[in-house]
């Protein structure tokens, strides 16, 4: 599904700046992502991709600028906007390192996506209602993990854990996915399956996806739109086809040609 200009915005970023210890990491970043888009965030290490995603998720307050997700403020000029659990649940986060709870089984991990919406006695005792259990099984099937439900998360492979995190995000009913290099630590086959699963959630469920990637080939294969960060600023924002060698050289430096071909 290609988003039309009429789609409302899932994410609006205006004048976002951030620094760590006096070093500017992001400089007046502005962009908008429409609902249902799948956007790759690329750029060299240290360009500010992870910081940007953490700011979008509302994990840390920005120095300046605003971020709003589905019409609700996340960042308001240097402060985090207070958000209820239900509003936070609309944004799903995926990191490079899978963040499932290793000692719990996969089913429980995925069910925890819905824990914020349960009555206290249920959420404290782990008594999942029938509707949630059905949603968990459905999400596991969608991510190709139906036969792994009873496994301890720590015993799953990295790719399976990442897909488990995607299943949790389905149960959570997230509308926007922020993924920070979700496949950087995976072998090519596992990485491909995770990206395919992410793409399926984007196409079939209309989830808006912003995913930072190291591999330009993955951005080309899965994401119609690319935002490139370089030195804390947006160096390119447009269709992925527009990313020719000249542009890549501006973003990554002249060695990129050899690196991409290798």
């Amino acid at each position: 599904m290609t988003p039309t200009p009429q789609e409302p915005n899932a994410l609006v970023v205006e004048g976002l700046s951030h620094s760590f210890g006096g070093v500017r990491v992001l400089r007046r970043i502005s962009f908008a992502v429409r609902q249902g888009e799948m956007v790759a965030l690329i750029g060299p290490s240290g360009a500010g991709k992870s910081t940007l995603l953490r700011l979008l998720a509302g994990l840390i307050p920005a120095d300046l600028g605003t971020v709003s997700v589905l019409g609700e403020d996340v960042q308001r000029e240097g402060r985090l906007a207070p958000r209820s659990g239900a509003v936070r649940a609309r944004t799903g986060l995926i990191f490079q390192k899978p963040n499932l709870v290793g000692r719990l089984d996969l089913f429980t991990n995925v069910a925890l996506g819905g824990v914020q919406a349960l009555a206290p006695w249920r959420s404290l005792t782990g008594t999942w209602p029938r509707g949630l259990r059905a949603a968990v099984l459905d999400a596991l099937a969608r991510t190709g993990l139906a036969d792994k439900a009873g496994r301890r998360a720590s015993l799953l492979s990295g790719g399976e854990q990442q897909r488990g995190a995607l299943a949790r995000l389905l149960v959570q009913r997230a509308r926007l996915v922020l993924a920070d290099e979700p496949v950087a630590a995976l072998d090519p086959v596992a990485a491909h399956r995770v990206m395919e699963t992410l793409t399926a959630l984007n196409r079939q469920d209309g989830l808006t996806v912003v995913v930072s990637l190291h591999q330009i080939s993955q951005a080309r294969r899965h994401c119609p739109r690319v935002i490139a960060l370089s030195d804390g600023q947006i160096a390119y924002d447009g269709p992925t086809e527009g990313l020719d060698m000249g542009r890549l050289a501006q973003i990554y430096g002249p060695d990129i040609e050899a690196a991409v071909i290798a």
Partner: peptide, 18 residues
């Protein structure tokens, strides 16, 4: 895992517990 569960919107007590 703590950040992951917090991000689902779970309350602090639930994050501690799970």
């Amino acid at each position: 895992p703590v950040e992951g569960l917090r991000a689902t919107g779970a309350a602090p007590l639930l994050v501690a517990l799970w």
